[in-house]
Simulated assay, not measured.
Amino acid sequence: MGGMTILWIVVALAVLVIVVALVAGAMSRVSTRRAERQRQEAHEHEQQARTSAMHAEKQQAAADEVDARARKAQAIADEKAAEARRLAAGADERREAAAEARTESDEHLTRARDLRPEETRAPEDGADDWTDGSHPHDPRHPRHSPH
């Protein structure tokens, strides 16, 4: 081998080393850019995650508030329903008492008529006839006061 051949082999090896170094450097820069892009993208996703988490917390707080108001409204409705049942039961008791009082009144009127057989017709002025609700203790009377 001549001196020239060795020189060309050395030059070829040097060029090859330089080309490999350039390719490696280019690959490194591409890899660095890709890593930087991925870091930036990861940072953006983290920011979006924080924003989404804050939004979710606000939505949860609003949902909790609405739920609390709904529970309060339901409690009030339950209380009102219980009061309505108590009032209805009281009204039923008063109706029963009024019916008993009317029955007792009718029995007394019948007994009074039986004791006075000569008076078969009702008084003309209606003074003793309380069946029209005009008696002050009758619940239908405008000035009736509950006992």
Rank of each mutant, 00 (worst) to 15 (best):
residue 34 R to P: 00
residue 34 R to I: 08
residue 35 A to I: 12
residue 35 A to S: 15
residue 36 E to C: 04
residue 36 E to D: 14
residue 37 R to P: 04
residue 37 R to C: 07
residue 37 R to S: 13
residue 37 R to K: 15
residue 38 Q to Y: 01
residue 38 Q to C: 00
residue 38 Q to R: 06
residue 40 Q to Y: 03
residue 40 Q to V: 09
residue 40 Q to F: 02
residue 40 Q to T: 13
residue 41 E to H: 11
residue 41 E to N: 06
residue 41 E to F: 03
residue 41 E to D: 08
residue 41 E to T: 11
residue 42 A to M: 09
residue 45 H to I: 06
residue 46 E to T: 11
residue 46 E to H: 13
residue 46 E to S: 12
residue 46 E to C: 07
residue 46 E to A: 13
residue 47 Q to E: 08
residue 47 Q to P: 01
residue 48 Q to M: 05
residue 48 Q to R: 14
residue 49 A to R: 15
residue 49 A to S: 13
residue 50 R to N: 05
residue 50 R to V: 06
residue 51 T to C: 07
residue 52 S to D: 06
residue 53 A to T: 07
residue 53 A to L: 02
residue 53 A to D: 05
residue 54 M to K: 13
residue 55 H to N: 08
residue 56 A to C: 05
residue 56 A to P: 03
residue 56 A to F: 04
residue 57 E to H: 05
residue 58 K to S: 09
residue 58 K to R: 11
residue 58 K to M: 00
residue 59 Q to A: 09
residue 60 Q to F: 02
residue 60 Q to S: 05
residue 60 Q to L: 05
residue 60 Q to P: 00
residue 60 Q to W: 02
residue 61 A to I: 12
residue 61 A to M: 09
residue 61 A to H: 11
residue 62 A to P: 01
residue 62 A to R: 11
residue 62 A to Q: 13
residue 63 A to D: 08
residue 64 D to Y: 02
residue 65 E to C: 00
residue 65 E to D: 05
residue 65 E to Y: 02
residue 65 E to L: 00
residue 66 V to Q: 10
residue 66 V to K: 15
residue 66 V to S: 11
residue 68 A to D: 07
residue 68 A to S: 09
residue 69 R to M: 03
residue 69 R to N: 09
residue 69 R to G: 02
residue 70 A to P: 00
residue 70 A to R: 15
residue 70 A to N: 10
residue 70 A to Q: 11
residue 70 A to W: 04
residue 71 R to D: 06
residue 71 R to C: 03
residue 71 R to P: 01
residue 71 R to V: 04
residue 71 R to H: 11
residue 71 R to F: 05
residue 72 K to M: 00
residue 72 K to C: 00
residue 73 A to I: 13
residue 74 Q to L: 08
residue 75 A to M: 05
residue 76 I to E: 12
residue 76 I to S: 11
residue 76 I to R: 15
residue 76 I to N: 09
residue 76 I to T: 13
residue 77 A to C: 07
residue 77 A to D: 10
residue 78 D to P: 08
residue 78 D to F: 02
residue 78 D to E: 10
residue 79 E to M: 07
residue 80 K to E: 07
residue 81 A to G: 11
residue 81 A to Q: 15
residue 82 A to H: 04
residue 82 A to L: 04
residue 82 A to K: 05
residue 82 A to T: 03
residue 83 E to S: 00
residue 83 E to I: 05
residue 84 A to P: 03
residue 84 A to R: 15
residue 85 R to K: 10
residue 87 L to M: 10
residue 89 A to Y: 03
residue 89 A to V: 10
residue 90 G to Y: 02
residue 91 A to E: 15
residue 91 A to Y: 12
residue 91 A to V: 14
residue 91 A to N: 14
residue 92 D to N: 15
residue 93 E to F: 07
residue 94 R to L: 06
residue 94 R to D: 03
residue 94 R to Q: 13
residue 95 R to S: 03
residue 96 E to I: 14
residue 96 E to Q: 14
residue 97 A to C: 14
residue 98 A to H: 12
residue 99 A to E: 14
residue 102 R to P: 01
residue 103 T to I: 12
residue 103 T to P: 01
residue 103 T to K: 14
residue 103 T to A: 15
residue 103 T to L: 11
residue 104 E to T: 12
residue 104 E to H: 12
residue 104 E to C: 04
residue 105 S to K: 04
residue 106 D to V: 11
residue 106 D to P: 03
residue 106 D to S: 10
residue 107 E to Q: 11
residue 107 E to P: 00
residue 109 L to P: 01
residue 109 L to F: 03
